[in-house]
Design a binder for these strands. Structure first.
Length: 317
DNA sequence: CGAATTTGACCTGCGC
DNA sequence: GCGCAGGTCAAATTCG
């Protein structure tokens, strides 16, 4: 029997480990912290999904889809896969298992297209970089066209199979500012010991300096479609998010969400939090918590979505 | 001596 | 199809 319910699973802030470890072929449900039955109240019907979200918004969500219906962002996860899709994924995964069982003929040496990967870009000071709690190992450095400074490439050195990557380059426009790009996610918990100074201690950036008084931090999230085209939030037909409401937030041509100076301290707190893996999630952003946080930062700030809040699905946790 | 970094070569994606 | 730019590999080198 085909189940038409749209199981919208939104797993709130939690350990990235618990979710990222959940990519096994048999683990096509959701995080162990929240299974479908337990989260029935989070579901809404397929018809409701169509009515509220619409096809195009559904398309918008696709970048967050993930094999096994599991998505994570900055240590949190959100799952948006309808059950009928999950059945198809079961078939695909069964097929993949068969392929794996067969003699290996070709192993892709490189990852999928770079524009398919979710990237989080931060502009950080040296101090911000040194507070990175992860252990990184440098594996490359390249000069970048148009920039006088090279870009350094780091991978997570804590876990052998961890796909987390980090790129560090100095801003060519602002001295003391480093553009850090995180790609993929850690599949393990944070190490107790860290090599957080990667890219700083041995940095050859001539202008590297500690600039505690220049806390500028721009947070971007590149949202890319697995089909190669990027989802354009600005043209979101459902007008899911009215950027005009957020004077310090903009979306650039690359569909990066940019948060300006004004919210710096608040953003810092929201991303770093007081405990491990406490990060802001896409869900929180949709849920309004993210913007509520900005509201706290910005007195009189009035976050609102472009669509009617009463019809917008509420991702209660 | 093992681990980390450096650096040139190689591979892939993408625009023209 | 070609060339460029970015990303990764891996041998050599350096560090602790």
């Amino acid at each position: 029997m085909m189940i038409m319910d749209w199981g919208l699973q939104a797993v709130v802030i939690g350990s990235s480990t618990s979710c990222s470890d959940f990519h096994g072929a048999n683990n096509i449900d959701f995080c162990p912290t929240l299974n479908y039955q337990e989260s029935e109240h989070l579901s809404f019907s397929h018809e409701m999904k169509k009515e509220v979200l619409g096809d195009e918004l559904e398309e918008l969500y696709k970048p967050f889809y993930h094999v096994g219906g599991q998505n994570t962002f900055m240590g949190s996860s959100i799952s948006l896969v309808p059950k009928e899709v999950k059945e198809e994924q079961r078939e695909e995964q069964r097929h993949e298992q068969q392929v794996v069982a067969a003699p290996r003929t070709y192993v892709p040496k490189y990852k999928k297209r770079k524009n398919e990967q979710k990237r989080v870009v931060l502009e950080l000071t040296a101090d911000d970089l040194s507070s990175d709690k992860w252990a990184w190992r440098k594996y490359g450095q390249k000069p970048i066209k148009g920039s006088p400074y090279p870009r350094s490439y780091y991978r997570c050195s804590s876990s052998k199979g961890c796909l987390a990557r980090k790129q560090v380059e100095q801003s060519c426009t602002e001295t003391g500012i480093f553009i850090v790009t995180y790609t993929a996610e850690h599949n393990h918990s944070q190490p107790t010991r860290r090599n957080s100074l990667a890219g700083i201690i041995k940095s050859k950036f001539p202008n590297s300096k500690n600039s505690i008084n220049s806390p500028k931090k721009i947070v971007k999230e590149k949202i890319s479609s697995p089909h190669g085209s990027t989802s354009n939030l600005n043209s979101c037909p459902a007008n899911l998010l009215s950027i005009e409401e957020f004077p310090e937030i903009e979306i650039n041509q690359e569909n990066n969400i940019i948060i300006g100076d004004y919210y710096d301290e608040g953003i810092r707190n929201m991303f770093e939090g007081s405990g491990e893996n406490e990060c802001v999630s896409i869900q929180d952003m949709f849920d309004g918590d993210f913007f509520a946080g900005l509201e706290d930062i910005h007195d009189g700030f009035n976050p609102s979505f472009g669509c009617n809040n009463s019809t917008f699905p509420h991702f209660s946790s």
